[in-house]
Amino acid sequence: MEIRDILADVKYSHISHSPEFVLPNNSCDCHHHIYDRRFPYVADDTRNLPDATVDDYNQFKKWLGHSRHVLVQPSSYGTDNRCLTDALAAFGPNARGEAVVNETVSDTELDALQLAGVTGVRFNLGTGNATTPDMILPIAIRVAERGWHVQVHATADQLWDLRPLLLQIPGNLVIDHYFRLPPGATSHSSWRLAWELIERGKCWVKLSALYHQSQRDDVSDMAALVSCFLREATERVLWGSDWPHPNLISANKNMPDDALILSKIYHWAHNDQVRHKLFVENPAELYRFN
């Protein structure tokens, strides 16, 4: 299939050009979602997001040039992880999953998720109500015994409020979307929290969905923030596309130029050693691809 044919089928991205760089072998997109209306959304879902299927993502993956990827359970499905595990089976060994569970989850259910390729659980405190902050620590203790990680998505202010809890997480902790820090956020309390957690050696930062805080279409105002994480926390950075960009779809906003955003991050990484850590080594360690 030629690149023009791939581009014709790529959904949920503004395409201005093909990527002008080649990602390292075994590069990993550490944050994307699958929506498949064969699996019903939870009753209180208000966004009614359209299909963004395995086939759709495969075209997106061919375009950007990565081979590994991590499926993140969307809030539309609550704690019903059937769409997630179905997609993991379709994608095969180059995919891993982050499920959503609550305090009622059984060990048998966790066993089944692990067999499906799940290596972590996510707490989205910004959208949906399937999980609450008081569930984080009890579940974190249980999944740490399996070598799984806990991922938290919250605003920078919420994360600071959660500081006492986050410092108690026994295993690996992943913070979505760069702590939701705005450009030039070195004075924010969660900037200090980020480094406090990173210096403990078990916190990973996803450089994903830069458009959440950026005020520019080309996300160039995020350069200083992202470059600092890449430079000072090279062992703990991850890249994620956030495809199909559900927050932008639900807000009826324009799709981002994913190749341009990835190009920015690629160049902010400033050398091949950092790029290999970001795209290959760090995801392989956290998500156990090796």
Score class of each variant (00 low, 15 high):
27 S>T: 09
204 W>R: 10
33 H>I: 02
65 G>W: 10
211 Y>F: 13
117 G>T: 14
47 R>E: 12
127 T>E: 13
257 D>F: 05
254 N>D: 15
159 L>H: 03
26 N>G: 10
176 D>H: 10
226 V>D: 00
247 N>P: 00
82 R>P: 00
155 T>R: 04
139 I>K: 10
238 L>V: 01
273 Q>Y: 02
158 Q>W: 02
138 P>S: 11
249 I>P: 08
179 F>I: 06
215 Q>H: 14
282 N>Y: 04
59 Q>N: 09
223 A>T: 15
24 P>M: 09
226 V>H: 01
149 H>E: 07
171 G>E: 14
194 A>H: 05
96 R>P: 00
118 V>M: 08
106 S>C: 10
235 E>M: 02
263 S>P: 00
290 N>C: 05
102 N>R: 11
258 D>S: 15
93 P>A: 11
111 D>T: 13
176 D>S: 06
48 N>F: 12
156 A>F: 01
232 E>K: 07
90 A>T: 10
261 I>A: 11
155 T>L: 03
237 V>G: 01
131 T>S: 08
161 D>G: 01
109 E>N: 09
158 Q>T: 00
114 Q>W: 07
6 I>M: 08
202 K>E: 08
22 V>H: 10
142 R>T: 09
66 H>G: 03
65 G>F: 09
129 N>E: 12
119 T>E: 09
133 P>V: 06
5 D>W: 12
148 W>C: 08
